[in-house]
Amino acid sequence: MAVTSGRPERPLSPHLQIYTPLVNMVMSIVHRITGAALYAGSLLLAWWLVAAATGPDSYNYFLSWCDTWLGKLVLLGYTWALMHHMIGGLRHFIWDSGYGYDLKTVDILSWGSLAASLVLTAAIWICVAMGVA
C-alpha cells in the first residue's frame, strides 16, 4: 500500500471567479430578501392597525411618523418589496406550470419582474400623491 503525503487531489468547486451572476440568479436572491422584508413590513402594518384601533392620538402619531422622510422611505421600500415579491411569485407560478424554461424566456421573465415591480410601485405612489387612492 502506497503512502501518500500531502493533500489528495480533488476537483475545486466553482466559485464567483468562474460563475457570473445571471439575472435569474439575482432575482431569486432578491425574491428571498423581499420575502424577509415583508415580515418586517408586517410589523408596520400591525402598528397601523393597532394605532387605528387605539384612538385618534395614536393614529395621528402613526401618520406623523409616516409623513417623515424616513417613514416615506420605509413605505416606499415596503411597497416595492410587496410588488416585487408578488411579481416574482407569478414568475414562479409560470415555471411551476411547466412553461418558460428556455433561457430567453427565463431572462425575459426575470427582467420583466424587475421592471414590473418598479412600474407598479411608481404607479401606486403616483396614485397616492394625486389622491386617487
Score class of each variant (00 low, 15 high):
Leu82Tyr: 04
Ile87Cys: 02
Val74Phe: 13
Cys127Gln: 09
Gly71Ile: 07
Tyr19Gln: 13
Val119Ala: 15
Leu49Cys: 00
Ala133Leu: 15
Trp125Glu: 12
Trp65Ile: 13
Ala51Glu: 04
Ala122Glu: 09
Trp80Gln: 03
Gly71Ser: 05
Ala40Pro: 00
Pro8Leu: 13
Ile108Ser: 10
Leu120Trp: 04
Thr79Ala: 12
Leu120Glu: 04
Ser113Leu: 02
Val106Arg: 13
Ile124Thr: 12
Val23Gly: 00
Met86Lys: 00
Trp95Leu: 15
His15Gln: 11
Ala115Trp: 06
Leu103Cys: 02
Leu76Asp: 07
Gly98His: 13
His85Glu: 10
Leu63Pro: 03
Thr121Gly: 10
Val132Thr: 07
Arg7Gln: 06
Gly98Glu: 05
Ser110Trp: 01
Asp107Ser: 15
Gly6Tyr: 00
Leu38Met: 00
Ala123Tyr: 08
Ile33Leu: 05
Val74Gln: 05
Tyr39Met: 11
Val30Met: 12
Gly112Ile: 00
Ala133Thr: 12
Met83Thr: 10
Gly131Trp: 01
Thr105His: 12
Gly89Ile: 00
Trp48Phe: 09
Ala37Met: 07
Tyr59Gln: 15
Leu109Cys: 06
Ile87Asn: 01
Ile94Lys: 10
Met130Glu: 02
Leu109Lys: 05
Thr121Met: 04
Arg10Tyr: 02
Ala133Pro: 00
Ser13Val: 11
Thr34Tyr: 03
Met86Cys: 08
Ala123Cys: 11
Cys66Asn: 14
His92Cys: 03
Ile108Ala: 14
Ala51Gln: 03
Leu118Val: 14
Thr4Ser: 11
Ile18Asp: 13
Asp102Thr: 07
Asp57Ser: 14
Gly131Arg: 05
Leu70Lys: 12
Gly71Cys: 05
Asp102Phe: 06
Ala2Met: 04
His15Gly: 15
His92Phe: 06
Leu16Met: 08
Met27Asp: 11
Ala2Ser: 08
Thr34Lys: 00
Thr105Asn: 07
Ser13Thr: 10
Ala133Trp: 06
Leu45Gly: 11
Pro21Val: 11
Ser13Trp: 10
Met86Leu: 09
Tyr99Phe: 12
Val119Asn: 08
Gly131Ser: 05
Ala115Leu: 12
Leu90Ala: 13
Met86Ala: 10
Pro8Lys: 15
Cys127Lys: 10
Asp57Leu: 10
Leu76Lys: 01
Val119Gln: 06
Ser5Cys: 07
Pro14Ser: 07
Ser42Lys: 05
Ala122Asn: 03
Leu73Phe: 14
Trp80Asn: 02
Trp69Glu: 14
Leu82Val: 05
Asp96Pro: 03
Trp47Val: 07
Val26Phe: 04
Ile124Gly: 07
Trp69Tyr: 11
Thr121His: 03
Ala40Asn: 01
Ile108Lys: 15
Phe93Tyr: 09
Trp125Ala: 04
Arg7Val: 01
Ser64Met: 09
Thr4Gly: 08
Tyr19Ile: 08
Arg32Tyr: 12
Leu38Asp: 00
Gly41Leu: 00
Gly6Lys: 01
Leu44His: 02
Ile87Asp: 03
Val30Glu: 14
Leu16Ile: 06
Pro8Met: 11
Gly55Lys: 05
